[in-house]
Every structure is written in C-alpha cells, then in structure tokens.
Design a binder for these strands. Sequence first.
DNA 1: GTCTATATTTAGATAGAC
DNA 2: GTCTATCTAAATATAGAC
Lengths: 221, 221
Amino acid sequence: MLEVAPTDQASDTRRRILDAAEQIFADFGYAASGMKMIAAEAGVAQASLHYHFESKEGLYEKVVERRTAAINSARRSALEGLVAQDRSNDLEAILDALFRPALSPEAGGVNYARILAAMSSASKGRDVELVRRYYDDIAHHFIEVMARAVPPHDRRAAAWAYSYSIGALVSQMAHTGRSERLANEAPEQSDFEKRLRRLVRFCAAGIREVMVEEAESGAAN
Amino acid sequence: MLEVAPTDQASDTRRRILDAAEQIFADFGYAASGMKMIAAEAGVAQASLHYHFESKEGLYEKVVERRTAAINSARRSALEGLVAQDRSNDLEAILDALFRPALSPEAGGVNYARILAAMSSASKGRDVELVRRYYDDIAHHFIEVMARAVPPHDRRAAAWAYSYSIGALVSQMAHTGRSERLANEAPEQSDFEKRLRRLVRFCAAGIREVMVEEAESGAAN
DNA sequence: GTCTATATTTAGATAGAC
DNA sequence: GTCTATCTAAATATAGAC
C-alpha cells in the first residue's frame, strides 16, 4: 500500500463533491453558487470542500478539468479513426468527431455542457483563460483538418467557420429548451442522432460556403 | 410642467446609472457585479440606485429592456424594408436584417452584447425568462419569414436552423477575441461589414441545407 | 433627489475537536 | 479526513439628514 493512493473513502468524497459542484455550478453559474449549497448537495461538511480543493476557485477548475480531458481525448480518437479509414476529407465526419463527444450524454453530461456554455460566452477573466487552456489546442487541430479537407484550403476562413460552428454547438449543448419551444416540439421529442445530424449538416454547408467565398473575395482582409 | 416628467437632473442620473450598470454587468456577469461597483462607476451614491430602480434585479431588467426595444425595432423595420423592395425571398437579406442591429456598435453597444451572450447560455432562472419575454416574438416572426423564403417551406426545420444561427451570432456578439486568435488576426483587423457578411453567408448556406434535408427525410421526427 | 451611515444577511474561509 | 462552530469580509438594502 503506497501512500500516494488516497483512501477509498476520501476518493469517494472527492468524486461526490465534484459531482455536486458540477450540478450547482451548472444551475446557478459560478458566482451565484455557494460553497454551502455544494456541501449540502454532496452531503458533506463545508470544510471538506476546502480540505480537498482549497478554495472555490480550485474546485471550479477541477470540475472543468475532469470533463475536458475525456471530451478532447474522444475527439482525437475519432479523428484518428477517420484517417485510418481514409475519410480525412469527409467534412461531415470531421464535424461528427468534433460535436459527438461534446453532445453525448456519457462524456461529461448535460451539467458540464451548461458550465461550458457559460464559459464560452465570457469576454474576460477566468473563463476566457480556461477556454484557452483547455480548448485552443484541439481547436487548432480541427481547423487544420478542416482546411485540408475543403478546397481551396484557406486556413483563416476555416478558423472563422470553426468559430461559428462552435457557437452553434454550444447553443445546443446548453439545452435551454428554446430550440424546441421555437420549433413547437416537446423538449425530449427529438432524439440524439437526429439532432446531431442536423447540426452537422448545417455547419458543413456553412463551412463550405465561407471557405469558397473567402477565396473568391481574395486573401486581403 | 406636469409632474410626470422627471427633472433633467434625475433623468441624467438614471441614464448614467444604466450605462454604468451595463458596463459592470457585461464585465463581471450579474451575480459577480456589486451595487457598490455600479454606484462608483456611475459616480453616485449607492442609495441612488435603489431609489431609482428599487433593487439589483430591477436595475438589471431595465438595462436589458432599454437595448432590446431598439434592436428588435430595427429588425422589424429592416424586414419591412425588404417586403417593400420585393426581396422577401432573399435569405441573405433576411439574415442581414436579423444580425445587423445586434452586431452594430450603435444599437446597444458591445457591453449589452456581452450581457445578452450570458443570458442566452442560461438554462434556468431569470435569464431564460428574459430571453423568452424579449426575444420569442421576434424569433417567431423571423422563422416564419425564413420558412416562406426557402423551399420547401418547412417551418420546423426553419426553427432549428434559426436556433443554430442565433448561436453563431451570439458567439460573435460577445467579442471574446477567440475567433481572431484562432484565425491569427489582430483583434480589430477585420472590419464590421466583412464580419457580418461572412456570418450571413455561413448561416444562409446552413439554413438551406437543413431545410432541404428535413424535407427529404420526411416530416417525422 | 441625493447623500452618509448603518442594519442585516450571506459569502468564503479557518480553528480545533475527534 | 470529517465534522461543528466561528471568523471576517462583502453583499443588498434601508434610515434619515439635507
């Protein structure tokens, strides 16, 4: 028994706190969430949160970190699968690899999706830094792949189209229920594959359009 | 002099408070913004905020209300202009009417845009209610117009495509600087018309794709 | 209508027993 | 490692002079 391994009880407490924090942060946002709320949700003393994560800030970062690794690792695996299948130029498949791990109920869950949606809309402060730290690498990777897949292979146009696509994705991840309300659908009427496919087709068409247009109008900005 | 008209001084104070609140709410988000901060930014006593707006909640709603009216009124005017010009089926022009008032520096300003971006990513609570109150009518209006403009005129498909488009729009309104970073551009290098046109083309292509696809796969969900 | 001063509540964080 | 109890700072909101 090495001492690097925490006790089973401590490990379980950490996980329970992370789950509770994810839930509370998703529901109320970072600033409006209280450490007392999180402690109550987790069923532990408030002091336990500070013992394991030091501060509210530290707890928040760990909540984000836990999910990000899983999502981006799934994205990279999916991309590698495409290369192995010689489908590197299949834009719809590329977007599927980008969106599916983020929308999937398994990888992260809807609570983390809501946290990410809030992070993405921030224009300054901690959330901007977290987006950069956890998502810029994967973004550059996908932009490069998209630029190679779609003629005339304009990397800058691909970057803008990528940003629009992430915007559309994030708006769907948050699950505000607004899309269904506007479409006159029951909140859970549309199944996952259908939603994913619709979003993929929307973005693929937009990406092709922007990349062609950008080339037509010249490289100057 | 009727007493319904407030004094010039009071009217100016109200406006200064609204401007300051808009700035602070945009920078820190609702929960992390303090009434003391806002009072300091406006150069008035904190008590003055409560005198004019009663509570933090009331102040926030007035901040949102002030800009929303201007934006949506500009959108409706632009749509009417299209009808008058017999361009009701010009999808790019319709999207221009939808996006321009929201992205324009005059109508609202970048601070309000950031507040709206935060509101749009909320999945429960006050912000969801505000989005519904201030933006559902105009959304239904534009969805109807889009459905009429694009064959095969599927209203439900138009609603989903509208949601994606708003997601892409909002991600750009927040001006996080991330798009420019990913595209390797200086933050203020790209001019307004160029950005607007690129976003319009992206969404127009996506909308056409989704509406055709939806019709091909049948009406069943 | 605007101010200073303060009441009241709640936040994040810590001390110390077990 | 987990708890109870508490500290200190900061929040919203209010009272009352001018």
